[in-house]
């Protein structure tokens, strides 16, 4: 029975990463919590990862969409060509 909840460190990291994007299942979260209890490496990783997520959210970071960037690049290249 216990074996069902035992996961490797790598698996725990993977679940933790997915959790940052709300993509882990309830079962996975449970397994991660179980490992979190006894594995210090997992605890360090989870705490650090959650801190990063919190920081990223509070920064309200913005970036360009792929198509916006492409359009900008095309215009710049055209201008560059005209200048040469």
């Amino acid at each position: 029975m216990l074996k069902l909840f035992l996961i490797s460190k790598e698996e725990a990291f993977h679940i933790c990463d997915k959790s940052q994007y709300q993509e882990s299942t309830l079962g996975e979260k449970f397994k991660l919590r179980f490992r979190y209890l006894w594995c210090s490496t997992t605890r360090v990783y989870v705490n650090r990862n959650c801190k990063l997520t919190k920081t990223l959210k509070s920064s309200n970071l913005e970036c360009l969409e792929h198509n916006e960037r492409k359009l900008m690049e095309d215009r710049l290249n055209e201008q560059l060509k005209n200048q040469m």
């Binding site: 913005e62 970036c63 960037r69 900008m72 690049e73 710049l76």
Partner: peptide, 19 residues
């Protein structure tokens, strides 16, 4: 090197500007 401006700086400048 203007040919790399978009790749290297567009997001940084965008974040700076939109705020």
């Amino acid at each position: 090197n203007p040919s790399r401006w978009i790749e290297l700086y567009s997001d940084y400048l965008f974040n700076y500007t939109i705020s």
